[in-house]
Nucleic acid binder design. Structure first.
Lengths: 173, 173
DNA sequence: CGTGAAACATTAGCGGC
DNA sequence: GCCGCTAATGTTTCACG
């Protein structure tokens, strides 16, 4: 991972673009008191270094019919061969049978309802963030998809009652 | 909340902009097989209806020194007056003493490490997503800030070991 | 770091299906 | 109603001072 030094101006640019990713280079330049060309050079450098990963539009879930947000804790089966399999894969044996964990990760990537999935410390193996239309869709997703996955041992779900805060803007240290 | 009908083209536009929020209107128009002006009219309509909430740049947490991601479950004290207070506020008594919940929500909004906070079903009241530099910073945040907050009764933290998936793109139904 | 010029993008008005 | 053309205006981008 390319280390990269960020000065005060870089951080200001990042915080501006975290708040509005469509600002023109001219506007950003003005806000950081630079002329357009050095500002663009900085932005390009931040993009190429991967500090800026992506520009996206954020949608309102309610306005597109996704009224229910759930966080689902998942525990996987511990196959005794799991370790052996991950080793095999790590060593490049691409057609070894997948370990439960790798298999679960691959499946998660394909489920559109699941917008985030992290392997976590603690008694539950994974934490999933799931956007669905309503409780009906949620229970269908659970029954037909998540609980049917062979690697899944058990799950615990909680549902969002109220959004207090949710931002993609990271604190700039 | 303004209801809005989305046809196939609208959904295609949304999915394109969820993947790249900086595409020019011309490029979007080309991908949905429309000429620039009707495409722009649709995008403007989606923005004004609030379907598109915001355009942002997404940063890589690791590249800006935020190496630790934690999810923190928080349980608040149940003051017996809590209900009375929330009623007072709901009725517009702006200078009533804040309920523990409202007070906690206000604090959360000011803590930059906390990028998301939801009131949840289940035994824990809130779920927080917290980005920090390392375990040192995390424990400092806990001791000096979160646990010191008068409304907080107890907390349970888990740490992300591995990111399997994390997208801001919502499934388009 | 800033200037300037070419290439490109945005957006409003108007006519057509 | 929604689409597409045109044309004026604004923006991005890069070579060069």
């Amino acid at each position: 991972m390319t280390k990269i030094a960020l000065d005060k101006t870089d951080r200001k640019i990042l915080s501006i673009l975290q708040a509005d990713g469509r600002l023109s280079n001219q506007d950003v330049a003005e806000q950081v008191a630079l002329s357009p060309s050095p500002c663009l050079r900085r932005i390009k450098r931040l993009e190429e270094a991967g500090v800026i990963r992506q520009y996206v539009a954020l949608l309102d879930p309610d306005k597109i019919g996704l009224g229910l947000l759930a966080y689902v804790n998942v525990r996987l089966e511990k196959h005794s061969e799991a370790a052996a399999h991950s080793n095999a894969r790590a060593l490049g044996a691409a057609n070894a049978p997948p370990s439960p964990r790798a298999d679960f990760a691959d499946s998660v990537a394909q489920w559109p309802e699941v917008v985030a999935c992290y392997a976590m410390t603690g008694e539950m193996d994974y934490l999933l963030r799931v956007h669905v239309e309503d409780m009906d869709h949620f229970s269908r997703f659970m029954m037909a998809t998540l609980l049917r996955h062979p690697a899944v041992l058990d799950v615990k779900s909680s549902f969002a009652l109220q959004r207090i805060k949710d931002t993609t803007a990271l604190p700039l240290v």
